[in-house]
Design a protein around this nucleic acid. Sequence first.
RNA 1: CGCGGGGUGGAGCAGUGGUAGCUCGUCGGGCUCAUAACCCGAAGGCCAGGGGUUCGAAUCCUCUCCCCGCUACCA
Length: 553
Amino acid sequence: MKQRIYIGVAWPYANSPLHLGHIAGAYLPADIFARFMRMQGHDVLMASGSDMHGTPITLRADKEGVLPSVIAERYHEDFVRAFAGLGISFDIFTKTTTENHTQVAQKIFLDLYEKGYIYKDRVLQPYCATCRRFLPDRYVEGTCPHCNDKGARGDQCDNCGKPLNSQELKDLRCTICGLTPAFTESEHFFLKLSAFNQELIGWIDDKTYFRSNVYAFTKKYLEMGLKDRAITRDIAWGIPVPLPGYEEKRLYVWFEAVIGYLSASMQWAKEKGDEKAWQPYWQDINTRSYYFIGKDNIPFHTIIWPAMLMGKGNLILPYNVPANEYLTIEGRKLSSSRNWAVWAPDYLLHYQPDPLRYLLSINMPESSDTDFSWREFVRRNNDELVATYGNLVQRTLTFIYKKFNGTVPSSGQLNAESLELIADAQVSMSKVADAIACCSFREGIREAMALAAKANRYLEATSPWKLIKEEEEAAASALYTALAVLNALKIIFYPFLPHSSQKLHEFLGGSGLIEEQSWSLEMPVSSAPLREPSVLFTKLDESIIDEEIKRMG
RNA sequence: CGCGGGGUGGAGCAGUGGUAGCUCGUCGGGCUCAUAACCCGAAGGCCAGGGGUUCGAAUCCUCUCCCCGCUACCA
């Protein structure tokens, strides 16, 4: 049955390049899922874009003396290049500064406002006279009224975990200049999250198939009770509030950026020349929407965005939010400011995308934080990708190429071992499919690699290089069987390693894009031509470990 | 009593009630089609520790210890 699937992927903040954390956290799992679903014949729309607004971008622009848009555009283009290099197959990757997004965001704002889900309220807001600006919550520090910890921020106290607002803090100070701000009244718009509390509890209740951390976190959050949140700010960079008298205010990023999931779909439809094409992805209740994000984004995708969708009405709620945990680098938390990170553009200058995709897939932070180390990268590449999978392909194809004229050997009468291996390949195909379908990517790629290892064992046991001297037909039959397994491998590795699967597809005589193949085992056709193979993956020298580590930090 | 994640052979990890597994590394052997790749065998773990539940626990409960996040950039 053909399923329609919408895949939303976290919108990267356009203020620094993409790093491995982004890729392992959201983009790679989303891409694996999308490629798999497309190959299964499902109808997929995968969308994302750059989050161009927000304070960090403004701060950086101030520092460099340029407009915020300059910074945002620079990184947006950088993202587009990195995604292309890594093979992240978005159907659309746009940005929040488009006319389209601005209009959609403003329209939703107005709609929720008219329905009473957004209301005005006057708030006392800390204003720093020295810095001449209103201070967002996290720019205010003080003493927690609950536990007396001195490092509490305007939004919450990290010591006791209690949510706060700036007015509750004692000994208030501005984190920029350290002086005491004064409270000034300002009018803001609030999203009435409290109105959706019950409905959200009902919605999350049957989402037991969610990853346990996502489910538990959301449930607890909802049971503690939702508080309405301000969704406008007194800043200049962002989407204007579309009401007269509020020209100086902007929509706050977390309200506006999530709307990008919807506006990007509309943009995709427009570019496709069918303005209504987005509707089935958002309005058909049989469509399943998935949101791939990092764990810090959970509340925005399981609470705020669903609440907004409920308020807007006639839009489907998330079907699943497979949030990943974090990736550490060489055992330490990554930090862009300390350059303790591996940058995607930088990686792509030196290495192929598939080895990285392999490591991040097989060691994906699905259920707990995992570590990326260059030693592990080299090891996985050399000992697993090259030695197990790559070498299987190489030994099979070069042998056939030399001894069978570069054509598929005749299958002859397949013996019991051969039939068993082919059956195993079929089982692997469905196991990998099941694993990916429930977002267990690690399990999926492990199974794929296990099949490659099994094929190596089969070759060892049948030893066609010996058979060919006495019983050429038996050798042909064994190699035919190995080719059948390669046909399975190119498919089941495809979602994870699209570049090498495409290459293998071509070695095996296939034409066109492997993506157009279906998720099924195609038996080779005897005497069909193969193409001259070259290596699928290359070994990496151990010396890169120290070099790469030296370049960080 | 702040919250959360985690502690499984040398390394990285899987395993959530029923004889402790995977990949790599190490040692020994085989093979020679293949990117010194492949295959077989072996050594190596009282599953952080104490207590409890159970016929039976790495797996459930409880306590203790240790590590990592929860602070700016940041999935």
